Simulated scan of single mutants.
Amino acid sequence: MTTDHAIPGSHLDVLVQGRGPALLLAHGAGGGIAGNFGLVLDDLARDHTLVGPHYPGAGGSAAAAGPLDLDDLADRLVRAAVAAGQDSFAVLGESLGSAVAIRIATRHPDRVRALVLTAGFATADPVLALATQLIKSLASAGQWEDVARFALLSCMSPADLADAEPAALDEPAAQILAAMPPGLLDHFDLVSRVDVRADLAKVSAPTLVVAPTGDRLVLPESSYRLAAGIPGAHMIELPGAAHVLNPADRATWLRHVRDFLAALPALSA
């Protein structure tokens, strides 16, 4: 079963796919469900119900009328899952989505079975804070092509950059430009304000933290801090992986996530 429509209650464009225990997907800033999870959607949907809401200004979701609020965004994602018939779920958060997932876990602990936090942060480290300022400044000046180039460089690993010819970066930069959602600036404005450090000790759900060690946008130290702050959290590293996982690294991610999800207590009837 696959649907892609606005589910009443959340006022967000929501992908619902598959059957089985639910996974609520929280995407990153300037991204979307396909952009963050597209390589693994079909695989996970074989035995899970995926609920993938798009933040305001992403996918088919209307742009926000004002600044995004983390509590409101977390609650809207939960309403989307409940409206899709899922009362409890694991939350898979990527980048900004990790902070959203953590806030969901502390505001709705009875609904959250587990967390998977990839390339996440509790608050923006100096590199991410500077990157956010640059993106907002370039976009405000209408330099969207430069935003796309900066995003491409930030999301590639050092190894990928070392092997790339400068001219070979033009096409992927153009693809990023074409895919940038209208809500990108709203998303990065939220990135600049997020602070869930006080939430970490309150997370009671089993948690897997995934740190791509080649991440140039969200330093892996941010993931290490998440794992250290969340009681009982388990952490794995993806050696050399970039902020946006390539197919090989995403396949490794999928194996670890599947092992983690399989070890969760079975849902009661």
Rank of each mutant, 00 (worst) to 15 (best):
A159C: 03
A122Q: 04
A122P: 01
T118D: 01
A241L: 04
D249I: 02
A114S: 14
L130Y: 13
P126Q: 11
V191G: 00
P247A: 11
L217T: 01
P206K: 06
A122F: 02
D189L: 07
M180E: 06
A124P: 00
A162G: 10
V203M: 07
P206T: 06
L169P: 05
E165F: 09
E237D: 15
R193G: 01
S222V: 02
M180A: 12
S140E: 15
P212Q: 05
A122I: 04
A178F: 05
P182W: 01
I236Q: 00
S137K: 15
D125Y: 02
L153F: 14
E237N: 07
S223D: 13
G240C: 02
A173E: 08
V209E: 03
E221S: 13
P220D: 03
A242V: 01
A205K: 06
P231R: 06
L177W: 10
L217F: 09
A119V: 01
L245M: 03
E145D: 15
H234Q: 15
P126E: 08
A131Y: 10
A241E: 00
A201Q: 14
G214T: 01
V196S: 06
D125H: 11
D215C: 05
E237H: 04
E237M: 00
P220T: 04
P126N: 10
E171I: 13
D160H: 13
A241K: 03
P172K: 08
D186K: 10
R225T: 12
D125P: 08
P206E: 08
D189K: 08
A201S: 15
P181W: 01
T132Q: 08
L115S: 04
L169N: 08
A248T: 14
A168R: 11
G214W: 01
L153V: 14
D189T: 15
P231C: 06
A211V: 00
V191D: 01
S154T: 09
E221H: 11
S140H: 11
C155K: 01
H243K: 09
D170K: 13
S154K: 10
G120Q: 03
A227D: 08
D199K: 04
A179K: 10
A148H: 07
P181G: 08
S192N: 07
A174H: 13
V194D: 05
D125N: 12
